[in-house]
Amino acid sequence: MAKIRDLTEDFKDAVNMGALSLGFKEAKRAALMASFIMHKPRERSHFTKTALKTLQGIGILEQFLIKHRKDYVDSHLTTEEERDSIEHEVSVFVKACKEQIDILKTSITDEEANAKGWAGTRGDDANADTIAHKHGVVLILSENLHSLTSQFDQLRGVRFQEAINQAMPRRKPKPKRAPPEKTEPTISSEMRGPGEITTEPPMKVQQQVLDDETRALQVELSSFLDAARDTETKMVEMSALNHLMSTHVLQQAQQIEYLYDQAVEATKNVEMGNKELTQAIQRNKSCQVFLLLFIAALIIAFLFVDLYND
């Protein structure tokens, strides 16, 4: 029996010589051989990239809230301008994440429209599972973002409550009226001696009148101050209520948009159903005409055969 010769080493040497002749260096050949063994990872889809970017943004927002939670709540650590800056940063983060989630929803809607087959039915089960998975991803991202916004709304409510407490009117005690000064009995001119001079106190009377007017003015200004503080308190409460209303309006807008999309999709399905019904009615009419013609042709054929036999 002839001995089999192993030509593996000769083949490797020939391959190396060919690679060197083509300009492949040692590092390039090693990278090429490694690429045959370890394949490159598949490129991520646009949906996956956007979802990961949104998740990263939500994580950054969560870290930002954890970092600035104490500064935002405690008025002794930060000023109102710094609080407004924190609120602006949070609103920018939330808006960016919301836009990314809307992009994901739009891509899912487009994919659903492309995946629908005849009469609005889904054509591929694997594609349906993928779409359901993407819906789950969008739902998780939306819930995480809503949780963070709810936490920030609670912090904002604490800030508004603190502002309301600071703006509550602090009524000052009314100033006590000074007791009336005792008037000294006036001595008539008859009881005065011939050498005494009559002295009337006109300055004291004027001072008493000025004091009364000052007290009345203080009372009036105090009432004006209380009214201004009441107005300020009501304005702060109105701003808090406006913020809560805007939050609820935003949620209702999202729900209305979802209902609108569902209504549009239902309208499209109804239109497709009407088209299918119209086509079915036309097919039914054509079948009836064909049957009538076929029966008439059979009758004529039977009559012709009967006449021919006679």
Rank of each mutant, 00 (worst) to 15 (best):
Asp125Tyr: 01
Leu139Glu: 06
Thr130Val: 12
Asp129Thr: 01
Gln151Met: 06
Arg171Ser: 00
Thr149Ser: 02
Asn127Asp: 01
Asn165Phe: 11
His146Asn: 08
Leu139Gln: 15
Leu141Val: 03
Ala132Val: 02
Lys95Asp: 09
Thr109Tyr: 13
Ala119Tyr: 08
Glu112Met: 12
Lys95Ala: 01
Ile103His: 06
Asn144Ser: 15
Asn165Gln: 02
Leu148Lys: 04
Arg159Lys: 06
Gln166Asn: 15
Cys97Gln: 03
Thr121Ala: 14
Leu104Met: 10
Leu104Val: 03
Val158Tyr: 13
Gln154Thr: 11
Asp125Ala: 11
Leu104Ala: 07
Leu104Gln: 05
Glu162Trp: 12
Gly123Trp: 05
Thr109Leu: 15
Leu145Val: 03
His133Gly: 03
Thr130Ser: 11
Leu141Arg: 09
Ser147Pro: 00
Ile103Arg: 01
His135Ser: 10
His146Arg: 12
Ser107Gly: 13
Phe160Leu: 11
Arg159Ile: 03
Asp110Asn: 15
Asn114Glu: 15
Leu148Pro: 01
Leu141Trp: 05
Lys174Asn: 00
Ser142Cys: 02
Phe160Glu: 12
Ala126Asn: 08
Asn165Asp: 08
His135Lys: 10
Phe152Lys: 06
Gly157Ser: 15
Ala128Pro: 07
Asn165Ile: 04
Ile108Glu: 06
Asp110Gly: 10
Gln151Asp: 08
Ile164Asn: 05
Gln100Ser: 13
Ile103Ser: 09
Lys174Phe: 00
Thr121Asp: 09
Ala128Arg: 12
Thr121Ile: 06
